[in-house]
Structure formats: C-alpha cells, structure tokens
Simulated scan of single mutants.
Amino acid sequence: MRIVSDKMPKVDVASILTAEEIAAIHEFMHHYPHPRAASLDALKIVQKRNGWVDDAQVNAIANILNVPMTDMDGVATFFNRIYRQPVGRHVILICDSVACYLTGYEALAAELKAQLGIDYGQTTADKRFTLLPICCLGNCDKGPAVLINEDTYGPVQPEEVAQLLELYA
C-alpha cells in the first residue's frame, strides 16, 4: 500500500524529469487559468517517455504545478489511461461494456488471453503487450472492440486476434 502525504517534499525536478518534459509542462500551464488544470496533460507528457509514471515523477509534476502531492496522485490514479506501473510496449484495452459483452466480448477476451498467455493486468514475458479491461471504448456499434495503443478495432472476432497482434511486432 502506498501512503501519500499532503506535504509536498521539494525535489530536484531536473533530476527526475527531462528538460523537454519540464518545458512542455510549463507550456501547457500557460493554456489554463490555473496551473493545476494542466495536471492530466503533464502526466501524459511524462508517461510518453517510458510508458508509465512513477511516484517520483508524480511528485516532480506536483512541484512544478505547485499542487499538493495528494491531489496529483489523485489525478494519476483516477484516469485509467495513466499507468502507475510498467506496461508493455503495446497496451491492449478490451471493452467489457454491456454492448461488447452482448456481441462476443467473452470469446474475444478468452482468445486474447490464450494468444498472449496472460490475464488482465499482466504483461507478456517479452514486454510486448499488456492486457487490460476498460468499461467502454465508445465503439458500441462495432463491438466487441479493442484499443491497441491509440488504434481502435471492431468488431473483432476471435479468429482475427493472431493477425491483429502481428501488426504490433
């Protein structure tokens, strides 16, 4: 269990984030009337480098935006597309909404798990894929649907899984 405090320890931000990340965060801060409004943008900027955001990076962002660490951690853990632990090079999100469930989600999920050899929340041994459920992809008319990185697919049939995975070598 992580314990997060409201006390924001001052950190050497430059030793945690790159100069480019710091500059990009400052640029986003100027787009909003309050720096804290740039929280999600800042997390996305930092996540882009290595695929996830660790506690030190969240603290560094909190320092830049001058917001309490608990607030920044709240944003980082609320959004399901901000990853707080390492993920594979390609993140597969499979929609488990009612619409996708009714159009074949269970068979598609079983095939993805079988092909990848992992369950939800796990990453393949070669660090190529992480498989996660998501409550809705907004692609209800094309269920069952998956999102791989930023690419949406649907409807996806179980027999198409191997060919789909090959696109992400």
Rank of each mutant, 00 (worst) to 15 (best):
I16E: 05
L112Q: 02
I148C: 08
E21Y: 06
P158G: 10
P68R: 04
E160G: 13
Y101V: 11
G138H: 08
G51D: 06
L17G: 04
P33Q: 05
L116I: 09
R89M: 14
I61M: 09
R89P: 03
R49Y: 06
Y120D: 11
D55H: 11
P68Y: 03
A99G: 07
P33Y: 09
S39T: 08
A109D: 02
A107I: 04
E159S: 15
L40T: 04
D151G: 09
K10I: 13
G104K: 01
M1N: 10
Y153A: 08
T152L: 14
V58E: 01
D126S: 08
L131P: 00
E21N: 06
M72F: 04
V13Q: 03
L147N: 02
E27S: 14
I16A: 07
F28W: 08
H31I: 12
W52F: 14
A62H: 00
E20N: 12
C100T: 01
G88V: 02
K44A: 11
L116Q: 02
K10R: 14
K7M: 14
Q47W: 02
H30S: 15
G154W: 00
D6H: 14
K142E: 14
P68V: 07
A14D: 11
Q115Y: 07
D96C: 13
I25H: 00
C135P: 10
Y120Q: 07
R36F: 13
A145Y: 00
D12F: 08
A38D: 01
A37K: 07
T130I: 08
I3C: 13
F79P: 01
T123I: 06
W52Y: 13
G138C: 09
